[in-house]
Amino acid sequence: MSGQPRCVQVLNGALAEIFETRDDVILLGEDLLDPYGGAFKVSEGLSDRWPERVLTTPISEASLFGVAAGMALRGRRPILEIMFGDFIALGFDQIVNGISKFREMFDDQVAVPLVVRTPMGGRRGYGPTHSQSLEKLLMGVPGIVVVATSECHDLRALLVSAVDDDRPVFLIENKLMYGRPNRRPVGGYLDELRVVETETRYPALTFSGSDFEGGAATIVTYGGMLPIVLEAATELILEHEVFCEVVALSQLLPLDLEPVVESVARTGACVTAEEGGLTGGVGAEIAARVQERSWGDLRRPVQRVAAHDGVIPAARELENQALPGVRDVIDAVAAVAGVRI
């Protein structure tokens, strides 16, 4: 594991590679310039090499989205770094009434090939306005693509694909992910878990501890919840010999349901796990669709694991209680799979 580069290094390397291979890419956001190199150091070293293509900006997210949209409309490929995912709220009018609609409103004469990179997630004690997971707000905006990265995905490929995409792509990163190794499966395995990866533009990973046989439930997750879900799945195996399949989506919008449906057909039960709030969450959408598509396969109703509906406290202990953890995932699997833990 120690041989694998950290996620921040992979993203940083991918950005440098993109800058080298394309001259239409511009990175803009707050505090990007070296030596600081962005709040999470993803853009470190880029402004020194490409000073004219790395634009540091004031605190001005609302106009940033507008500037980036304008660049995209005029044929550039801007990458917008929003320092904290919480701040996308400032750009919502631009997103909802502009970026997502221009292409259809102007009858395909324009495209908005814009990439918004932003970290979501808590567990660092940053408090109510710097710890949220707001993917669910983006889920209701047709015309954009929402891609969640995770420490097990090919981060380079996801970033390159997002830049190549002619649609506006929101690439969701995670604060805890940056410092962790980018744990890629080797030879179809990640440690003891078998992993298959879809051959889609934004792949989903499906993990199994029993070679995709006899799974008790499918846990659908993404982003920063993945390591927590994998820990829960591993504990379920080691302590109880309860085997789950874990589907780690990257493409949340349009929702990539196929790997979920395929897995549920094998396991007969489904749990969703996300770090965002429960009500109207990504899990709610997945649950609804799984129940439409896989009703005949399901033994019990889909269970959702999510944060409580409320502010995320800054105090660590309280934050841990507000956000879903390993125990919550295990309990949900026990409930849905009808096993006593």
């Binding site: 395995y189 003891e192 078998r194 501890g209 029993s210 070679d211 195996i237 080691l238 010999e241």
Partner: peptide, 10 residues
């Protein structure tokens, strides 16, 4: 003595 790539179960 059990050679296996995945988890070793009962």
């Amino acid at each position: 003595a059990i050679e296996k790539q995945g988890f070793i179960t009962e």
